[in-house]
Design a protein around this nucleic acid. Sequence first.
DNA 1: AGCTTTTTTTATCATTTGTTAATTTTTTTC
DNA 2: GAAAAAAATTAACAAATGATAAAAAAAGCT
Lengths: 186, 186
Amino acid sequence: MDISNILDRIHELPEQSKLALQNNVTEIALAKGHILLKANKIESNIYFIKKGLVRAYVERDNEVTFWFGKEGETVISMKSYVEEQPGYETIELLEDCELYELKTENLRKLFNEDVHIANWGRKFAEKELIKTEERLISKQFKNASERYLELMKDHPELLQRVQLGHIASYLGITQVSLSRIRAELK
Amino acid sequence: MDISNILDRIHELPEQSKLALQNNVTEIALAKGHILLKANKIESNIYFIKKGLVRAYVERDNEVTFWFGKEGETVISMKSYVEEQPGYETIELLEDCELYELKTENLRKLFNEDVHIANWGRKFAEKELIKTEERLISKQFKNASERYLELMKDHPELLQRVQLGHIASYLGITQVSLSRIRAELK
DNA sequence: AGCTTTTTTTATCATTTGTTAATTTTTTTC
DNA sequence: GAAAAAAATTAACAAATGATAAAAAAAGCT
């Protein structure tokens, strides 16, 4: 998925504004296993995924995966981006990736200069917010096997591309519980 | 809390832009129990809480409270606001409230006209996103009694102002479980 | 292909949370 | 302030999920 498509998918932009964003983007390729963003660090870039798959996780005694990003999605440390404070998430590449890199510094400048880009940034946050809110509500309404079925329905390809330990963590259960749920569904 | 304060708390605005927003706001007072926003309906207003307390809930077989709003906070149906689609949440006043009302139509117009207001709207969504993300992660990391202790620590006044059934629902557990947790903590 | 490592499944038992119903406490109403 | 209604607690049992360990299956490596 190319950068123009990715930007438009978030929110349509006039050609001029889109070019302003595109001019600040550089393309990079990184290997599976690479750590793209580190927890407890102020990150100065955001990324758009051209190709590949990543996950965001938080580490305490265990590791909790709370987001997967695939083609077309945006990789961002929200705390760094919004509050210029160290973020809580680590981003790991689950596949070899091709990424578009954008310095948050440059993005901030564009936000202040171009009302279309400011509204594009607003739409981005708003849409992410709805997705996160829906997940929170789903977590409150549904038990683990319902959430698993929902994920199978909404993102079946994830189950092919991601190992089950990460899926379990994303669903908020242990890997053993997920295995049990899968066995019961057969 | 007056409107100028509320707007600034979200993100600082130049005087001119702030006045533009304030000019579109009208003040209303509504009684406890009033339903401010309805699920499955495209809502055309957002509200800022001058005084009082509200909750957002989703209804299926049971009722799940997923947000409390108090003085200074913004009441909004995200789906209506972002996608102009019927929202999933109902907003009920838990106390008599004084509110500032703002038509989303007018807000949208301001977003397109004033880059400061567009960035103010962006900041609003971004901050809400971080709060929601943190709750999602907390839900994944912590068990019910840890989440209860966290709520007591972060929002002790809620426990005085909200009945425990709603708190339990917010924490994602039954009222009976919450009672049990409270009994164990004594 | 064969060996090694990693991932997934299965089994058992422990813990947490849910369900239902009865009881007590608090709040509301007249 | 007494009666009624609503909210909160307690108890007993059921169901879901967690923890640990062992076995099986799959993936990676040379």
